[in-house]
Design a protein around this nucleic acid. Structure first.
Lengths: 227, 227
DNA sequence: GTCTATAAACAGATAGAC
DNA sequence: GTCTATCTGTTTATAGAC
């Protein structure tokens, strides 16, 4: 008979170890984002995950390995949230269909990044990695930001008639993304100025309405420019 | 005869002490922004400023005092850079004059925040304070962000005919600011996607052109909405 | 796989010489 | 006003019991 006496009795094949691993990543994403990578101690991460300090060295080789695991988790999450909406970008599009698709992509980004509370930890982690670039940022750029923005530009080009790799196209799309991102990164200022205590579905709808109007206005301007 | 034997012979009345104080603030703004407040050691700040570790306790009472001094410095810098352009917002404006003034304010923000290299340290410090809000953020909001945005909204209202304190006005102006801020906060991604190695006057001009076009497009949309 | 105990380095604050 | 030296607590990493 083959038994597994060294693992807990109720743990499935990849059960307890994997659960600890995930709990550590979630806790790390939250604490690295909130306090900064170096300021968040491995002890506080382990405590928040309900695990032991030594488990970080065991699962990730050390604190730096945990940071990379967080980056991979972020990449997978972003792809999961935005991949479906951007998948349609591969096929050729009519200007009208491209415009509709852009609106759906913007809505998907707002729905994920601005409204969902879990996105806070991700956004803070990403911004911090941008300020102090490490290998984690390289992965984020190569596997998430660059391919996503490339496809966003392709759809923008189909909607406006401008070339997808023209500087003006890249700048316009980045500016559009900046409008959305602000409501996550600068959320504290925005909420105070608006008298909001939280950004729920209702507030998300108000943001969505403004940003879709701005998208439409920017597209019209870009279309006129490209003609 | 009154001599000052305890100070260096070449130091003017408020000379050396004040110079050390300023050097510490500059170094702290840079290091707090780059590595995070808690990750940047007082030793590294003192070394970067060419001063001694103990000088931080002497001038600011401790590390936390240095953080507040940084916040005050940032407030003064922002007011110095944007105050002149926003001063004209106090007087009543025709729609056309308001539109011109908004363009000038946007240009002033780009000129300061996006193009000037010193703005990097300020932006990183501010974003970090937003993530982990402390007394420093309270000061930044109350003395810089809130009054500046209030005036920006007033000009926006004059340009579009919408009420200055309407949620739509606040959201539209915040989104517009987000577009600009992205080219500082997300600069690393933007530069790579554009193949830029730096954002100098030429690149600043390209950003300016896109953002002014988006401002114009958003204003037209808001004007139509308010009518 | 999880835990305790410990090692070696480093943090911020401060006392006191100059 | 600046500096050296030191105190006290905390950090990450790791060795080894279970």
């Amino acid at each position: 008979m083959v038994a597994t006496p060294k693992t807990a009795p109720f743990a499935p094949a990849e059960g307890r170890g994997e659960a600890t691993r995930l709990a550590l990543i979630h806790a790390a994403l939250d604490l690295f984002g909130a306090k900064g990578f170096e300021a968040a101690s491995t002890r506080s991460v382990a405590a928040a995950a309900g695990a032991n300090v030594a488990s970080i060295a065991y699962h990730f080789g050390g604190k730096e390995g945990l940071r990379l695991a967080c980056a991979d988790y972020v990449i997978a999450t972003i792809r999961g949230a935005l991949g479906p909406a951007l998948a349609a970008a591969a096929a050729p599009l009519t200007p009208t269909a491209a415009r509709d698709l852009l609106a759906r992509v913007v809505e998907a980004i707002i729905g994920f990044l601005v409204v969902r509370p879990e996105a806070q930890a991700i956004a803070r982690f990403v911004v911090r990695e941008m300020f102090e670039p490490t290998e984690a940022f390289e992965r984020l750029y190569a596997e998430a930001f660059a391919p996503m923005h490339l496809r966003f530009c392709a759809v923008w080009a189909a909607a406006t008639g401008a070339p997808a790799d023209a500087p003006a196209t890249k700048l316009a799309t980045l500016a559009m993304l900046g409008q959305i991102l602000y409501f996550r990164v600068g959320r504290r200022v925005a909420m105070r100025r608006l008298g909001w205590s939280d950004i729920g579905p209702g507030e998300g709808e108000a943001i969505r309405a403004i940003l879709l109007a701005h998208l439409d206005a920017a597209l019209t301007a870009a279309r006129r420019e490209a003609a």
